[in-house]
Nucleic acid binder design. Structure first.
Length: 280
DNA sequence: GTTTAACCCTGCACGC
DNA sequence: TGCGTGCAGGGTTAAA
């Protein structure tokens, strides 16, 4: 799940659970459930700490969701690649790979399920949020107001790395993963292996603009739901952006712009899709 | 400083 | 049909 999906989830959560009070938390009794709350030594410690607190707001930082609670704690969630929340009720059976169920006083619950358990969640106090190393390293994201092209240009020039690698580096710019970094590079007309310090100022501006446009478009389409990713929103509904993808997953298919077959290469261990004609 | 590979995990597509 | 293999992905970590 990348920025657009996380942001859609954040907006859904904001509507659905702000103002609700946690009744009880069930960390399921299988091994992978403990993997999800891996920072906590015991199920009880995690569950008891959340119980009784009311959700006051839901924030996003990069690909992390932060649920603020009125007891002074924050539930921090990262979805990894296959994690997500689904809204449910107590009567509905839990689907496979459900690891945590948060029951609310006001009826209805929130299920966290994650087949590959690359995601995680943990509780920390709001005061200690600044000491969470991973969050501290999260760079600005393309949607933030103070994400300016001047600053972006300066940071690009300071590094000597392939564009694909930098766009996916959460310390450089947050929110982009494998799908959207490829889509951004196509929109900007730049190859994934171009070095960051080789761009003209016109190319920098194109890249900057593409980041914002692609991310905003993807949110408007409520995210990308691809076959085995099977991302759906809080209410189980699929996104629509997979129909808008220009290069990701389209190897061998004709480029939507110039009809040249889309190609792919490995960059930093990840498959990167691109149009050999449109990107240079 | 940057790059590569391995690791965590499950599900699915593939070839035999 | 059924099995093994490889790949997918986000992020961290160790080694090159």
């Amino acid at each position: 799940m990348e920025l657009p999906e996380v942001e859609v989830m954040r907006r859904d959560l904001e509507k659905e659970i702000v103002g609700k009070r946690v009744k009880e938390v069930d960390v399921r009794p299988h091994r992978n459930a403990m993997r999800v709350i891996r920072r906590h030594a015991r199920r009880r410690e995690f569950a008891d700490r959340l119980a009784g607190q009311k959700v006051t707001k839901v924030e996003r930082k990069g690909k992390y969701v932060l649920m603020h609670l009125d007891g002074g704690d924050v539930l921090v969630v990262h979805f990894g690649m296959s994690g997500q929340f689904i809204r449910g009720t107590k009567r509905q059976a839990l689907q496979q790979h459900t690891h945590v169920v948060i029951e609310f006083l006001q009826a209805g619950n929130l299920r966290y399920f994650d087949p590959r358990t690359f995601g995680e969640m943990f509780v920390t106090s709001a005061d200690d949020l600044g000491n969470v190393k991973e969050l501290d390293h999260i760079a600005i994201d393309p949607l933030e107001d103070n994400f300016t092209w001047q600053q972006f240009s300066y940071e690009l020039g300071r590094r000597a790395a392939k564009l694909k690698t930098l766009l996916m580096d959460q310390r450089f710019v947050s929110g982009l993963g494998n799908i959207y970094s490829d889509e951004v590079l196509f929109a900007a007309g730049l190859r994934q292996d171009r070095m960051s310090d080789s761009l003209s100022s016109q190319e920098v501006r194109r890249l900057y603009r593409s980041m914002r446009e692609v991310v905003q478009d993807a949110i408007r389409f409520r995210g990308t739901t691809l076959g085995d990713e099977a991302y759906v929103d809080l209410f189980g509904k699929a996104g629509e952006f997979q129909n808008e993808l220009k290069v990701y997953g389209r190897k061998g298919q004709a480029c939507r712009r110039c009809r040249t077959p889309i190609d792919s290469v490995k960059v930093g261990g990840r498959t990167s899709y691109f149009c050999p004609q449109c990107q240079s």
